[in-house]
Design a protein around this nucleic acid. Structure first.
Length: 287
DNA sequence: CACGCGTGGCT
DNA sequence: TAGCCAAGCGT
């Protein structure tokens, strides 16, 4: 028996009131929210999403801005390549799709920064199509409730089939089930301290029924330490450029990180990514 | 498939 | 406190 009906009933009664669940929320708003939610927590996304959509209410509005404006407005959301990708997606939507966010999965997948998760999330949540949507929350719920193991392990192509197997036939019910299982993983069946005492499917959970066995399988890769990493240096350099209205000199960049080899590697990476441009020996965000 | 990629809050 | 974790994507 599928866990979907019980989780969906729980979701309808207990789901959080989030901006992208408001009636009339646009497909563009959904797309922007999904970009922001790629590895950034909901609580940090909500206020930034409102600002973003007020400033750029349509894809054409963002496409008309400079990529540097997008990168600057992205500050504190993390992984700024997403800002560049979102801007590039807005340009593509404006040029190739008449300014309308496409609704079929292949067209969405063809946009920069959109992968298996985001393409299906937009097709399902913005347009009501029937697809399995698989994020880490859903993979964790399926691992525990269905397979009886404590952790989801690395993401794989099989994940979509596993979600499809429990997805209701009805288009509307499938949409609710996708949102519901995701929500359960986000607020109840959490990674660290699952709240089984309030879980609507605790009695059916294979992991719980097995006595919470320790995870034996292959683990998802662990994120590398941040302090002292190239990522930190990149972040510091980019923060410097965001804060400046004029190009930043190489001498000023030297002040943000003392180790030359690492500083040069970070700057070179930012240039390759297009997050920074060289304007005659000084550096600025792309215009 | 494993890795690199920000930022900040939580335990 | 030092990890752990967060609605992933591209290579």
């Amino acid at each position: 028996m599928s866990i979907a009906p019980a989780v969906s009933d729980w979701f309808v009664a207990n789901g959080r009131d989030l901006p992208w669940r408001r009636p009339g929320f646009t497909a563009w708003g959904t797309l922007v929210s999904e970009f922001m939610l790629q590895q950034t927590p909901v609580v940090r996304v909500v206020p930034r999403l409102e600002e973003w959509l007020e400033r750029w209410p349509t894809p054409a509005d963002l496409a008309a801005a400079s990529p540097g404006d997008a990168v600057r407005a992205w500050a504190s959301l993390g992984y700024p390549r997403r800002a560049l990708n979102l801007h590039a997606a807005a340009v593509a939507i404006t040029e190739r799709h008449g300014g309308i966010v496409p609704e079929d999965v292949p067209s969405l997948l063809a946009l920069p920064g959109i992968g298996d998760y985001t393409a299906r999330a937009v097709a399902v949540f913005a347009y009501g199509h029937r697809h399995p949507v698989v994020d880490v929350n859903i993979r964790r719920v399926l691992a525990r409730a269905v397979r009886g193991v404590g952790e989801p392990g690395p993401a794989s192509k099989r994940d979509l089939a596993e979600m499809e197997a429990i997805l209701p036939e009805s288009i509307a019910d499938a949409r609710t089930a996708n949102a519901a299982v995701m929500e359960l993983g986000a607020v109840v069946c959490t990674a660290r301290s699952p709240r089984c005492e309030v879980c609507p499917i605790a009695d059916a959970c294979a992991w719980r029924l097995a006595g919470y066995p320790a995870f034996e399988g292959r683990r998802a890769p662990v994120q590398k330490k941040f302090p002292g990493s190239d990522r930190q240096v990149r972040g510091l350099i980019l923060a410097e450029l965001r804060a400046s209205e004029v190009p930043v000199t190489a001498g000023e960049i030297e002040l943000v990180w003392a180790i030359e080899e690492q500083r040069e590697r970070a700057l070179a990476g930012l240039l390759v990514d297009g997050l920074v441009v060289d304007v005659g020996g000084a550096f600025e965000l792309p215009s």
